[in-house]
């Protein structure tokens, strides 16, 4: 137990924890029994309601939805990375017009709901005479939305590099693009890989919203699969939930694994370094990686406190980077004001 709130327990504390454990297990069993009983009396546990999910044709239909989800997520990811990258560079540009346009784009798409972006991609393009279908509409909306989010991740990744890197590159006479290609991006991208994978997990969750424009992802298929009338809402959505859960969970695990590997290879603090981007899933990722490191240290028989100390130091460094980013933002603002 390593928590700031609880110290090593004495004999009385341990006894109390034992009592609390027994009570909470009992309460848990009672609650679970209540749920099962309620499901039973509502007739949701009968085999007939679950049988449709054992028929291969039905499952194949649902898994086809999963394939569609993954297709849309991957397509959206590839394009958002490319476009987000250019917006990040644009926001760091010295040209005020370019910077202003990029800021406007990023702030706009970061402050509207994804659903609104999806409606723009579907009805908006339709009104503009472009009948591109649900898949393209969804991907366009996801790209518009996520490229704004990713551009902030990229910007934070670039900003988190030591200023000396840019200065050294300039000192040996590198121009902008060679400097970016050879010095800045290889380092920034390596730092950002876990955050990008975490964003991919979020994105694959968001593909479910393609439902509203009729894209055949898992939720839509879960409502329209051949055995739906034999099963019911409850069963269908539980199965859809399980399918999504497994997909997103695997991606989240991958992100966490990458984050941990990144830390041991000591090229910065991975997701922690770009906390400034302010994305809840990514912040949670670095938290989880912290916890996993402590557990691993305890398993190796090392002193977990030392790991926590080094994490606190790393976080301090990361926050410093975040502060630098904020200062840079303020600097941007001041410079703009100065020019007006």
């Amino acid at each position: 137990m390593s928590s700031v709130l609880i110290e090593e327990l004495g004999p009385r504390g341990k006894a109390r924890v034992r009592v609390a454990t027994i009570i909470s297990i009992l309460v848990g069993i009672v609650l679970l029994a209540l749920v099962v009983w309620k499901l039973g009396t509502a007739g949701q546990l009968t085999w007939a309601k679950w049988e449709p999910f054992t028929v291969w044709a039905n499952l194949e239909f649902l898994l086809g939805g999963l394939v569609n989800t993954i297709k849309a997520a991957l397509a959206a990811m590839v394009f958002s990375i490319i476009i987000g990258f250019f917006f990040a560079l644009g926001r760091l540009s010295r040209n005020a017009v370019v910077r202003g346009l990029c800021v406007a784009y990023v702030e706009f798409f970061r402050s509207i709901p994804l659903l609104l972006a999806i409606f723009m991609g579907f009805f908006g393009l339709l009104a503009a005479g472009l009948d591109v279908g649900a898949f393209t509409s969804l991907v366009v909306a996801l790209v518009a939305y996520n490229s704004a989010v990713l551009s902030e991740i990229f910007r934070a990744g670039i900003k988190s590099l030591d200023k000396g890197q840019t200065e050294a590159a300039q000192a040996i006479g590198m121009r902008y693009w060679p400097m970016m290609r050879i010095v800045i991006l290889p380092q920034a991208v390596r730092r950002m890989v876990p955050a990008i994978v975490a964003q991919l997990a979020t994105l694959s969750k968001d593909v479910s919203l393609g439902f509203v424009i009729g894209y055949e992802e898992v939720v839509r298929r879960g409502q329209g699969f051949p055995g739906f009338s034999d099963a019911g809402n409850f069963q269908a959505y539980v199965v859809v939930g399980v399918v999504y859960f497994i997909l997103v969970w695997m991606l989240a695990r991958l992100a966490r694994y990458l984050e941990l590997r990144q830390r041991t290879s000591s090229i910065g603090t991975g997701a922690a370094a770009i906390d400034g981007a302010g994305l809840e899933d990514i912040a949670a990722l670095s938290e989880e990686a912290d916890a996993a490191e402590v557990e691993a240290a305890a398993a190796r028989g090392e002193d977990p406190d030392r790991v926590v100390d080094s994490q606190t130091r790393a976080r301090g460094a990361a926050e410093e980077q975040g502060t630098k980013l904020n200062e840079a933002r303020k600097g941007d603002r001041d410079r703009r004001r100065g020019r007006d």
Partner: peptide, 30 residues
């Protein structure tokens, strides 16, 4: 374990599925 289960469950499921389960699914339970 209850808390980490809760967090894992809601973090890895799309909000749309949560809504549909809460509205249609729980509705089916009466």
């Amino acid at each position: 374990s209850f808390a980490s289960g809760y967090v894992a469950l809601f973090r890895n499921m799309p909000l749309l599925v949560v809504f549909f389960l809460a509205f249609f699914g729980v509705g089916d339970l009466g």
